[in-house]
């Protein structure tokens, strides 16, 4: 049964990995990547490393893959252009891949463990404890100092990102939902002909609350107060 599950997950993992590279649509590629991560997590579960499985799903699927999706959707990258030289560069890539494979095989073949290594481990896995709990025990007791320091570093990173990017310009348009709902006046539905452009249809900008100036046609969609 375990073997069946292993081959199932491993097969899907390899198939989705191939699809990541070959998919024409970059969004599909990222979705295949997510599928691959889930299958890898399942393989970790089979191996008895449930902590790694959780981390893989939380970190890679929850954060990294979503970030990839953002980048793919927000940046205007022409992936077809990027992939144009695939055929031409394939032999070169194959050579590099072959060398890497050879080196990996060498590592696996020549791998030796010092016989006394197992006995020398500073933090052996305690018996009758699953590995999440074992990690938690060592992280929150012996290494609490280092753990808290790492937390402080992450906090500093967060402060730094905010300090360097958050801007409080006087002209910033913030959505004030309460005001938006309480706004007097009427809302009209307009039928916009396809390709007519907003400026020509006569949609007017909502009046600013402080200084009601003459409403003027705008070139972007008005959505309540600002955006």
């Amino acid at each position: 049964m375990t073997a069946l599950a292993f081959y199932l997950f491993a097969g899907v993992l390899i198939a989705s990995a191939v699809m990541v590279v070959t998919a024409r649509n970059p969004v599909h590629a990222v979705l295949y990547l997510i599928l691959g991560f889930f299958n890898a997590a399942a393989l970790f579960l089979i191996a008895g490393a449930e902590f790694l499985a959780m981390i893989l799903v939380i970190v890679y699927v929850g954060a990294v893959a979503v970030l990839f999706l953002f980048v793919v959707m927000m940046l205007d990258i022409d992936f077809a252009q990027l992939r144009r030289g695939l055929q031409r560069h394939a032999p070169f890539g194959a050579v590099i891949g072959g060398i890497l494979l050879l080196e990996l095989l060498l590592v696996v073949a020549l791998w030796r463990l010092a016989p006394e290594a197992a006995a020398l481990r500073a933090a052996p896995v305690p018996p009758a404890v699953d590995n999440t709990e074992a990690l938690g025990r060592i992280l929150y007791t012996d290494n609490i100092y280092l753990f808290q320091l790492a937390g402080l570093i992450l906090l500093v990173a967060m402060i730094g990102a905010i300090v360097l990017t958050l801007r409080d310009r006087p002209g910033t348009k913030r959505q004030d939902i309460a005001r938006q709902i309480a706004r007097p006046g009427r809302i009209d539905l307009l039928r916009v002909p396809t390709g007519a452009g907003i400026a020509t249809t006569g949609i007017l900008r909502p009046e600013p609350a402080e200084a009601p100036a003459a409403a003027k046609p705008v070139a972007h969609q008005p959505q309540g107060e600002g955006h």
Partner: peptide
């Protein structure tokens, strides 16, 4: 060595940020 590295990072990261403080 781990405490050494974490201390160094905890020093460096704020320094990177304040070097760019006049953003």
């Amino acid at each position: 060595l781990i405490a050494l590295y974490l201390g160094l990072e905890l020093l460096s990261l704020p320094l990177y940020v304040i070097a760019a403080f006049d953003r």
